[in-house]
Write a protein that binds this DNA or RNA. Sequence first.
DNA 1: GCGTCCAGGTCTACC
DNA 2: GGTAGACCTGGACGC
Length: 293
Amino acid sequence: MSTFTLAAPENFRYASTINSHGWCLLPPFGYDEGSATLSRIQRLSDGRIVRLAVSSGNDRSVNVAVEGQVTPAQQAEISAIVARCLGFEQDLNSFYSLLRQHPEYAWIEQIGAGRMLVSPTIFEDLAKTLLTTNTTWNMTRQMVARLAALGEPYDGGHAFPTPERLASFSADELNAQVNAGYRGAYLRTLAAQIASGQLDVESWRDPNLTGAELYKRLKTIKGFGDYAAGAMLRLLGRFDELGLDSECRRMYKGRHNGGTPATDKEIAAYYAPFGQWRGLVVWMEVMQDWLVS
DNA sequence: GCGTCCAGGTCTACC
DNA sequence: GGTAGACCTGGACGC
């Protein structure tokens, strides 16, 4: 067993990041509530597959445990993966500064919320986001579990399948495994476009790309409408769009509209003052009860 | 156990 | 630009 500690940003909070949305429950992530440990089966660039266990360290740090011994290069890669998944690079200072003008949202800074748990690759987040569309969370979990099982096996679990692996199936073959309904064809197309090099989604990390440009590109992916593109934008650290789904609308109706349904335009008008952070504010409100409890 | 209804977003065709 | 209907799965419900 190899263990090491990673320094986290000043305002990082482990629990608020892990619970930022449901990703910690989707394989190859796993979460043990008792020990508050986030696990993940991960394929490294040299082909080795490892099981990581991440837990909260002392102030401003997380502990990482890996089964077996790792080389310095592997440890460096694992550190970079963990830092990416936990959003260490996300600068929330201007977000918190904005919230100080809105006392009703003081709780967000108080619990250090705002970082989103993400996957190591944009492809994995795209695939999972696609499987959240037009379905219930329970079904998303089932579809993702079946999808993840197509990856390389490791000690009772699997690494997340690569685009190349998914593209090696026909749409029908893939759907026979994943049971994703009409989404299966969209997933297979996405994987094939990435595997062939036609679509380079990792280039979307470029900080010079505006949120609007990223949103436009996301909307070109089959199966990515307003909700999915907005939700995926959040995972890319941009919050220009609201990514409204039924849960967001339900929250707004109960919290801001006296129990009366609001139009998306009305919801957008409410969050407009939060500018580039509006998509994060609405998501924080959706997750408030879960994050604060 | 079977049939029906429903929830969840996106796409396409049409106006 | 807005709208209707189709797309799928599986849980809930009534019989």
